[in-house]
């Protein structure tokens, strides 16, 4: 780094991503400052999840560069495992390891990746379970937990690696409505503790109350971004306005009989079986 200024937590320059002939990201420029909470919103298929998955290279960008904490993750020679250690990720479908207890879910990467001893790993795991309100579930298996508990355990699993950046990929979309609040509360606390967060979400209230900045994406580009009260309260672009009206007042739009302008996202092309586990 030749710059004297500290680099942002995440820096994305002219990011493109295609799945076969389908271009999902069409040139994204984007930054997340240290300690900043950025919510990415937009219709299905707008590329927001793909953007998030490019940041820790779960998806390989087609073109463009990404830096996380000053390290270029798009460098072909990057030590991706060590970069990922500093980036927590929370998935829509939780992805807890079903064959391990909650405690083991939280300790396995600490022990295998960070080489922490059992006692230390368990102490850190229990601290994080307390943070998400699951102290009493350490010995349970994921299948014995509710969706909300599973997602909080997944957050605690990521936190146990002491990441500098947390990525949330629609963390509440698979939850029953009454369980959403617990997860959002945990995330809000995390934001208050100063965690740098990138959150792809449909929870507009969370974006409004917790985000430092809201980014609206549509059709593979960033349409508009700014403080929540501007983007959500007084959107400049027609596409943002129409999206917000559909999200915030769906029945009203239906009455107007407007055609749904956001088709379901095309499934990413099925990877050949051989590549399934070569992430």
């Amino acid at each position: 780094m030749t710059t004297t200024q500290p680099r942002p937590a995440v820096e994305i320059r002219d990011l493109h991503k295609s799945f076969g002939p389908l271009e999902v990201l069409k040139g994204i420029d984007f930054e997340v400052g240290h300690g900043e909470v950025v919510c990415v919103i937009g219709p299905s298929g707008s590329g927001k999840s793909t953007l998030l998955r490019c940041v820790n290279l779960l998806e390989e960008p087609t073109a463009g560069k990404i830096w996380v904490d000053g390290v270029e993750v798009t460098d072909p020679d990057v030590e991706i495992d060590s970069v990922r250690r500093g980036i927590g990720m929370v998935f829509q479908s939780f992805n807890l390891f079903p064959h391990l207890t909650v405690l083991d879910n939280l300790t396995i990467a600490q022990r295998r990746v960070l080489r922490r001893g059992r006692a230390e790993a368990e102490r850190i795991a229990r601290d994080n379970l307390e943070r998400v309100g699951l102290t009493d579930k350490a010995g349970a298996f994921p299948a014995q937990l509710s969706g909300g508990q599973q997602q909080r355990a997944a957050i605690a699993r990521s936190l146990s690696m002491e990441p500098k950046l947390m990525l949330f990929d629609e963390p509440t979309s698979a939850l029953d409505p009454e369980l959403v609040g617990d997860v959002l509360t945990v995330m809000r606390k995390l934001a208050e503790d100063g965690m740098t967060m990138m959150v792809v979400t449909h929870e507009m209230a969370f974006a409004r109350d917790v985000a430092d900045r809201v980014v609206f994406m549509d059709g593979g580009v960033v349409v508009e971004q700014g403080p929540p009260r501007e983007v959500l309260g007084a959107p400049q672009h027609e596409r943002t306005r129409s999206f917000l009206s559909r999200v915030l007042d769906p029945t009203h739009v239906a009455q107007l009989g407007q055609p749904d302008q956001a088709p379901e996202p095309p499934e990413p092309p099925q990877l050949p079986a051989d590549d399934r586990h070569n992430v």
Binding site: N56, L58, D81, G88, F91, N95, R157, S158, V279
Partner: peptide, 13 residues
């Protein structure tokens, strides 16, 4: 499920 591998890789494994 593919998400298992993704979650494990995301943790730095």
């Amino acid at each position: 499920p593919k998400g298992q591998m993704e979650a494990a890789r995301t943790l730095g494994m």
